[in-house]
Every structure is written in structure tokens, then in C-alpha cells.
Amino acid sequence: MLHRLSLRFRKEWLYLLMLLPGVVLTAIFSYGPLYGIIMAFQDFNPALGFAGSKWVGMDNFKLIFSQPSFLSTIYNTFFISIFKIIFGTLASVVFALQLNEIRQNGPKRIYQTIVYIPNFISWVIMAGILTDILGSNGIVNEVIMALGAKPVQFISNRSVFPWTLIFSDVWKTFGFGTVVYLATMTSIDPELYESAVIDGAGRWRQTWSITLPMLVPIIILMTVLALGNVLSAGFDQVYNLYSPVVYPTGDIIDTYVYRLGLQNGKFAIGTAVGLFKSLVSSVLISASLIIAYKTAGYKVF
């Protein structure tokens, strides 16, 4: 037994040595504060601390989940998140492919920079611009009316609002994915394309049978990573765009919890909701890992 262990160590020690600094830092800064989770089960009073605060079991969870509107909030969060992931991935991949077709390096770089820029505009500012563009008298509705259709209440119509959130977010953030997918494409072996050309494959065929399959692993990875955040459907965006009239379809968990007034020391409820989000994300990530492995034979982590 001891011998086996030492043999294993001899094989691994270099890897372990490499991992050491990261593991130590992570242990201190990520695992160190983990005990804070117990706050979710306490009536937390900062002055009494973790040791002195009253243990209340599941009360914090009960309070949140007994709210009729909280369940619809969970549904909204899922709905908005999932479609953001789907359309966001689609947009990033398609745009990366389009950019990849541009052979001149100059324009390619400029375009790539431009689509990354909206990532940096905060939602406070972006929301101001969006309400201008999408309002009743905004430019979008003027076009719609010029085409003879009825104006669309993008911001205040309950059934439209989630889609406004989804598409504005996709538009703002797809540049991020594009960067990753493009970096992947540039690392594809050019010989693969050369031999495909010799076989008489056109660009569509090349894209379809070389580029896309090479992208699949990274697409799966990015999706799994996004699933880890599925219950955070974009606080800043929703907070800056929603209003009471669209709460039934537009309110997400984070905005709901924010309105509780966490600033006012309601740490415990915030922690309880956070723990709930973590658990759900864990289940989703595990499921997606299994699916990715069973269907594509691909190990994400």
C-alpha cells in the first residue's frame, strides 16, 4: 500500500508541485470563508457573530419560498437565462464564423474590437439608450409603424419584455463569445483545410465538417460554464429596465432579493437564496457534464 502510494507520488509530484500555489490560495480565499453558509440557517446578527446568532433552521428558506411571487421569479430567471444562453451562443458562433471568412486581417481585427466594446457599457447607460430606442416614439417603433404594423411596447408589455431582455443582452455580450470561438478557430490546423480543398470541399463543406466540429468542445464548455450562472440572469440589466408592470414576467431572483433591502443587514436571507442558487447550479452542471459525456463522449472538466 505504502509502496503504491509512493509510486503514485513519484509519478505525480511534479504536477502536484505545479498545482500547489493555486491550491493554497484557493483554499485560503475560497474555502476559508465557506463557513459563512451557516448564516443561511441563522437569524444572523452581526453583533453576535456566527457563533452567537440564533439558529433558525429552514426559516429563511421558508420565508422566501412561501412568497407566491418567488416561484414565478424562479421561472422567469430560468426562462430568461436559458434563452440568453441559446441565442447568445448561436450569435457568437455565427459571428465568429462570419469573421473567420474575412481573410483580410485589418478589417477582421477592427470588427472584432467593435463587437467587444458594448460589453463595457454599463447597463445604467445602456438602459437609457434602450428605453429611448424602444419606447413608443422610439426609432424602432417608428419603423414598425411605417411598415403599417402596430407599435410594440418592448419595455412595458409583459409578454414582450423577457424577449427584450434576452435579445438586448445577446447583442451586448456576444462579442465575448466571439473572441473565444475565434481564438479556437485560429488554432485549427491549416493542413486540415488544405487537404479538404484538395478533396474539392467548398467553404460551406469546410465550415460544416472541419470548423464546427472543432468548435463543439469549446461550445459545450462555454455552455456548461454559463449554466453555472443560470440563476443569475443579469441583475444590472433587469434592474435598470424593469418596472412594476412587468414584474410578473421580468422579475428575476436577484432583483427580487435586492428589493428585500440587503443593504439593511438582511444577510441571512441573501445567503439562503445564494445557497439555493448554488445547489441548483450544481445539479445543472452535473447533469450537463453527464449529458456531454454520454452523448458526445466529451469530458468538460
Binding site: 470563508p33 465557506l34 459563512g36 453558509i37 441573501g270 445567503t271 445564494g274 450544481s282 452542471i285
Partner: peptide, 9 residues
């Protein structure tokens, strides 16, 4: 996936 929150941090 899991964090301890701001206070212990």
C-alpha cells in the same frame, strides 16, 4: 459554485 458570502470574506 459555492461561496461563503461577504461577511466571512
Amino acid at each position: 459554485l459555492f461561496g461563503g458570502g461577504l461577511v466571512p470574506w
